[in-house]
Nucleic acid binder design. Structure first.
Lengths: 404, 404
DNA sequence: GAGAGTTAGTTTAATATATAAACTAATGGT
DNA sequence: ACCATTAGTTTATATATTAAACTAACTCTC
C-alpha cells in the first residue's frame, strides 16, 4: 500500500526535476521553478543533491534576459554506463552506452539456430563480460544489464517462459547470469517491449503518452506504452497481438491457432508470396526486406507483395487502435525496412476502415532506432529501473465531470 | 505537472483511509494503522476529518482482543445520493442510489427508435428531475449525474461523438443538461466503460486490478480497467474491440468494415442464425436471449446456436487476452443472459487456442450487476469523480531488476 | 477482585519538507 | 552611475507525519 509521507514528496519532486533537466537541458534553476511550479528554494535544494549524486552538472553561464545570467544545468550522461543485449533467433547483439544511450561499444555475433541453450547463454555472458571491460571510468560504473528475448518473460524472476522461435521454455536466464554478476541489476524482458522502451526514451516515442511499438520481423510482437509506462498485463502477455485472429478460415500459425495476424504482415507472409510467385531468388540466405524495397522501385511484382503485406499490417493496426487508441504506432522490425512500401498501404487501410473520423487515427511512423531498438531499449530499461523510475507519472485522467 | 507537496501527501493518505474503510468496514483506527502502515496519530487525525465530512461514522464498539475494545468505523453510504442514467437504443433507465449503489428509486421508459434527439434528451431530463425529487435529505444531497450512452464520447466536453445505433453524431449532451442543473457534476461516458466502472466498484470486478468488461448485446463494446483505472485511450476509442476483424472475408458490418467480431458474437449473429434456420418464431418482438437459453435445455438447435455464438465470443476473448492480458473478463449485456450456454464454449475456445499455458487464461465470468451494470456504473462514475478519485493508485510496476 | 498485561486511541514533541519573503548577486539599459 | 530586472540563496514559517509518552478500557490470572 503506497502511503504518502514527506520523503515520498521529495522523491517525486527530485525525479521531476531530474527528468526535466534531462529533457530540456541546458536549463537554469529559475526555469525549472517556473515550469514545474516548485519554489525556487526547493529547486535549488534538489539540484544541489542531484549534483552531489553526479546526475546533473553545471555547464556554464547562459544568456541574460535582462538580469543576472543563469547557471545552466545539464544531465550528466556520463554518470554511469548501461549494457543492453538483444537475443535474436540466430544472433546476439550487445551495446554499451552512456545514460543518453549513446553507443560506446557494440558487437554482433551469429550463432546456429540449432545451438543449445547453455551455449547461447555462454556466448551472452562473454558479450556481457566484454561490454563491462570496455566500460569507461564513471561515478557509477556499469549500472545494470538489460536483455531482450523473443518470447514471453516472467520479469520478477527473470525467466524466459516461452520463446517458440528459440525453442526455449522456462529458462532462468537472470539467475544464471546473476551468479556471475551478483551486484549488477539484471533485467530480462520481451524484445518488443524493450524496443518500445527504447523508442520511448530515445526514439520516435519521446513525445507520446500512449503509443504502441510493433516489432514486425519473422513474427509480430508489440510493446504497449500507456500513460508513459510500459504495460505488461498480469503475465507479461499484453502486446502478443501478432496472434490476433484476422482470418478465421485462414492459414495455420505456429502457435497452433488459425489466421493469426503475424501470418499476413510479417516476413512469413512475404516469403510465402515469393515462393508462390516463383521468386525463389529472394528466398533463403538472400532474403532481405531492405533489398526487396530497393528492387521494388522497378519490379512491380515485388512492390505488389510489399503492398499486400502493408495492407494486412493496416488491418491489424486497426485492432491496435480499437484496443489501445494510442497517439502513435511505431513500426519496427525488418518489415519496417520496406519503409513507405508498407507504411503507406497500412495507413490507407486504417483510414479506410476506421469507425470514427480523423482524430482517432494514430500517427503511423517508422522506428527511429531501427535495428538497434531492442538493444538500446534494453539499456533504457536499466536506466528506468535504476535512475528514472516511471512510478510518479500522473495517474490516468478520471472520467471528467463537467460542472457549472 | 504533478509536483509533490505536503497537502498532496495528506490527500493521498486520506483517500487511502477512506477506501480502506469503505472496503473493510467495520474497521478500527488501530486496524487501519496496521494495514496501511500509517501512524496511529495520523490515522486518528484523518478519520476525524472524514467524520466531520460525513463520509465516515463510528458505528459502535467492537470485540476486545485482549485489551481495550475498538471503536468501529463505517463508510457512510448515506452522505449523499447518486443519479445514474442508461441511454439504450430504445429505452432509458434511471437509478437513484446511495453511495453504496443501493437503489433508492428506479424507472425505465421505452421510446421509439425513430424519436428525435431533442425528444430523447427531454425524456432524459424528466427522468433526472424525477430522480432528484426522490433524493433523501443527506449532507451532500445529489452529488452528480452519470449518463451512459451507446457510442463514442468526448468526456471533457460531455459530447456524444458518434452513436451509430442511435444515429447520433456530435450531440453536446452534458451542456444541454448542465443548463438545467448548473451546480451538479454531469458525466457522459460510453455505456460499456461505465458498466466496467460499475463492476469495478460494486460487482464482479472488485478483486481485480486489470479486467475487461464485455458488453455483448446488439453489438459488442468493452470497458477496460487497467491498474484499477478505466483506460480510455486518447479519444475514448479504447475498448471498441467489437470491431476487431476476425474474418477478413466475412460478413459486412454496419461500421463499413468486414468480418467484425460483433457480427459473430452478439445478438446480430443469433438473429442471423435463427433466420437461416427458419426459427422466425424467436425473431422480432419475441427475441430474448434469456428465453432462448431456457428453451435451449430441450431444443438442440437453439443450444447449438448459442454455443456457436459462445465459440466466436471465445475467439474474440483470445484477442482481449493478447491485447490486455487481464486477470478477468466479465461478460455482460444480453448475451450474458445465456449463461453457461455461451460462457462455457467461450472458455473452451480460449483454452484451446491460447499461446501460453494456464496462468495466462483470465477468469471468464458473468456480470454481477446484470442489466443494471451501466446505470449503476453511471452512478459509480459520479462517486469516483467526486468522492473517491483513482488518481493515487500506485503506478504500474516497472520492469523489475533482479539483483543480488 | 486486584493487579499485570494488552490493546485502543490521544496528546505532545520532534522532524522533514515545501514555501513565502527577504536577501544577495549579477546584469542590461538608460 | 543608477535603476530595474533576473538568478539564486538564506531565513523564517507552515503543514504534515512520526515516535514516544500517555490515558483509557479491557482480559486474564492468581
Amino acid at each position: 500500500m503506497r502511503t504518502g509521507n514527506i520523503t515520498l514528496v521529495k522523491k517525486m519532486n527530485k525525479q521531476l526535476v531530474l527528468k526535466l533537466i534531462r529533457e530540456k537541458h541546458p536549463i537554469s534553476r529559475a526555469d525549472i521553478a517556473k515550469t514545474t511550479g516548485l519554489n525556487k528554494a526547493t529547486v535549488s535544494a534538489l539540484v544541489d543533491e542531484l549534483i552531489a549524486e553526479h546526475f546533473v552538472h553545471e555547464s556554464g553561464i547562459g544568456e541574460s534576459t535582462g538580469g543576472r545570467r543563469p547557471l545552466m544545468l545539464r544531465f550528466n550522461a556520463d554518470a554511469g554506463s548501461l549494457v543492453g543485449i538483444e537475443l535474436g533467433v540466430n544472433y546476439l547483439y550487445a551495446v554499451l552506452t552512456n545514460l543518453n544511450a549513446e553507443i560506446i561499444w557494440e558487437q554482433r555475433r551469429s550463432f546456429r539456430p540449432t545451438e543449445g541453450q547453455e551455449a547461447i547463454v555462454g556466448e551472452m555472458a562473454e558479450l556481457i563480460e566484454a561490454a563491462i571491460r570496455r566500460a569507461p571510468a564513471t561515478p557509477y560504473g556499469v549500472m545494470g544489464i538489460g536483455i531482450g528475448v523473443p518470447g514471453v518473460v516472467h520479469t520478477e524472476s527473470g525467466t524466459v517462459v516461452f520463446a517458440p522461435n528459440l525453442r526455449w521454455g522456462d529458462v532462468a536466464l537472470a539467475s544464471a547470469l546473476q551468479k556471475r554478476w551478483p551486484h549488477h541489476p539484471i533485467i530480462v524482458e520481451n524484445e518488443a517491449k524493450l524496443a518500445a522502451l527504447g523508442e520511448k526514451w530515445f526514439g520516435a516515442g519521446k513525445e507520446f503518452a500512449h503509443f504502441v511499438y510493433i516489432s514486425a520481423g519473422i513474427g509480430i510482437g508489440a510493446g504497449v506504452v500507456l500513460q508513459h509506462q510500459l504495460y505488461r498485463g498480469v503475465n507479461g502477455l499484453a502486446g502478443e497481438i501478432g496472434h490476433h485472429t484476422i482470418d478465421l478460415n485462414g492459414i495455420r500459425c505456429s502457435c497452433g491457432n488459425i489466421g493469426c495476424w503475424e501470418m499476413y504482415a510479417s516476413e512469413k507472409y512475404i516469403e510465402r508470396r515469393l515462393a508462390e510467385q516463383g521468386r525463389s531468388e529472394w528466398l533463403g540466405d538472400r532474403f532481405s526486406v531492405a533489398a526487396m524495397a530497393l528492387a521494388a522501385e522497378s519490379d512491380e511484382q515485388l512492390a505488389r507483395i510489399l503492398e499486400e503485406a502493408g495492407r494486412y499490417l493496416g488491418i491489424g493496426l486497426l485492432q491496435t487502435v480499437y484496443a489501445y487508441n494510442p497517439e502513435a504506432v511505431i513500426i519496427g522490425g525488418s518489415l519496417a525496412q520496406a519503409g513507405e512500401h508498407v507504411l503507406d498501404p497500412a495507413r490507407q487501410e486504417v483510414k479506410r476502415r476506421i469507425l470514427v473520423k480523423k482524430e482517432s487515427e494514430p500517427y503511423i511512423i517508422p522506428s527511429e532506432l531501427k535495428e538497434k531498438s531492442c538493444a538500446i531499449g534494453a539499456a533504457a530499461s536499466v536506466l528506468e529501473a535504476v535512475v528514472l523510475p516511471p512510478e510518479f507519472e500522473p495517474a490516468l485522467p478520471a472520467p471528467q465531470a463537467k460542472q457549472g
